[in-house]
């Protein structure tokens, strides 16, 4: 679990100094800059941050699905079970995708192919990776629909995506993702497009399936509540860089980066009591810097930070380590008040 010592059991997924570059009109931009984290077998980790912080890019990079031809992994390793996915061939990545590592997406309304029934779409993955016959795959598709709690799965299996509600479609996406019992499931904002009540159901489903299948989950979200509910560890991303990492409990109780602190203050229900010190919700002033400013050799959060000093404008902070693998990329992490 500890990112900083090599003594613990080898991680299932170990990302080391990952740098992802995107070619834009204004030049090459590092949308992920020196990102490292470990995910143990059956573990779960959340990536948090505002839009445009590189969370989804992280997910796409892990899957080898960076936008082509603009994006590429410029440096670093993605070690999955000891194999470096950053250097794997396309054919090898296709074997892994959907089989060892799966992904579910933000927009269930558009992530199913409208011209095939949901049964065909689940069966497709089973036939591709497990060589099942049409008939076996169809039968298994019904079981999978049942396992994600779609009512009357033997009838629903022949439905087209447009016949399902958003929540049901996301369940189908989860069924497709888990069809081959992957070792890692990447959930990229899986509930953003859904009603609040349905969100809770999807999170319950993911938690339940994780317990049953032992699949490790990488949750990408901007919902701190979801993080608290779903994950043991979290990584806070800002402008393509890791701002803070640690156990969810530690990070929420004692954020070591002003950005994390800002995110937490912007959420109503995370702190047990609203005290006189914190009478109302706070927002973080400003916005994420434009892509062109990514990669500058200073603290990219400095322009929005209350406690920024000249040092923050002049140099890029390194990682400061705390207990339990808690780390923060802020010069003043030690001095942060809880």
């Amino acid at each position: 679990m500890n990112t900083h010592s090599g003594t613990s059991a080898p991680a299932l997924l170990s990302v080391k100094n990952l740098r992802v570059e995107i070619k834009t009109r204004d030049g090459v931009v590092p949308v992920i800059d020196d990102l490292s984290f470990d995910l143990p077998e059956g573990g779960n980790i959340s990536f948090v941050g505002e839009s445009g912080c590189g969370k989804s890019m992280t997910a796409l990079a892990l899957m080898g699905l960076l936008p082509q031809p603009a994006g590429r992994i410029a440096a670093g390793n993605i070690l999955f079970d000891g194999e470096d996915l950053a250097r794997a061939t396309d054919a090898r990545l296709r074997e892994i995708r959907g089989n060892d590592i799966s992904m579910i997406f933000q927009e269930p309304m558009t992530s199913l192919n409208p011209v095939y029934t949901i049964g065909e779409q689940i069966a497709e993955v089973l036939r591709r990776h497990q060589g099942k016959s049409r008939k076996e795959a169809h039968a298994r598709a019904i079981e999978l629909l049942d396992s994600v709690h779609i009512p009357s799965p033997q009838l629903r299996v022949d439905d087209y995506p447009h016949q399902l509600s958003g929540g049901q479609r996301q369940r189908v996406m989860i069924a497709i993702a888990l069809a081959c019992k992957p070792r890692i499931l990447i959930a990229d904002e899986p509930t953003t497009a859904l009603d609040v009540t349905v969100q809770a159901q999807i999170f319950d489903l993911l938690t339940e399936l994780r317990e049953v299948t032992g699949t490790a989950i990488i949750l990408i979200t901007h919902d701190m509540g979801a993080v608290a509910q779903m994950s043991e560890r979290m990584v806070v991303m800002y402008a393509g860089r890791k701002a803070e990492e640690g156990r969810v409990r530690d990070v929420i109780q004692q954020p070591r980066h002003p950005y994390t602190k800002g995110l937490i203050s912007a959420v109503p229900h995370l702190l047990d009591t609203i005290t006189d010190d914190r009478p109302e919700l706070l927002e973080i002033p400003g916005i994420v810097p434009p892509l062109t400013e990514f990669g500058r050799p200073n603290c990219l959060f400095a322009s929005r930070c209350d406690s920024a000093t000249e040092k923050c404008q002049a140099a890029r902070p390194g990682e400061i380590a705390f207990d339990n693998g808690h780390s923060s990329a802020c010069f003043y992490a030690d001095e942060m008040q809880p």
Binding site: M63, L65, R94, E95, I96, R97, G98, N99, S102, M103, F105, Q106, E107, T110, S111, L112, N113, P114, E124, V125, R128, H129, M173, I176, A177
Partner: peptide, 14 residues
């Protein structure tokens, strides 16, 4: 560019 194409890609489609 639609999401279901990325989704298919993410399940290993050639």
């Amino acid at each position: 560019e639609l999401e279901y194409v990325t989704a298919s890609r993410s399940t290993g489609a050639s």
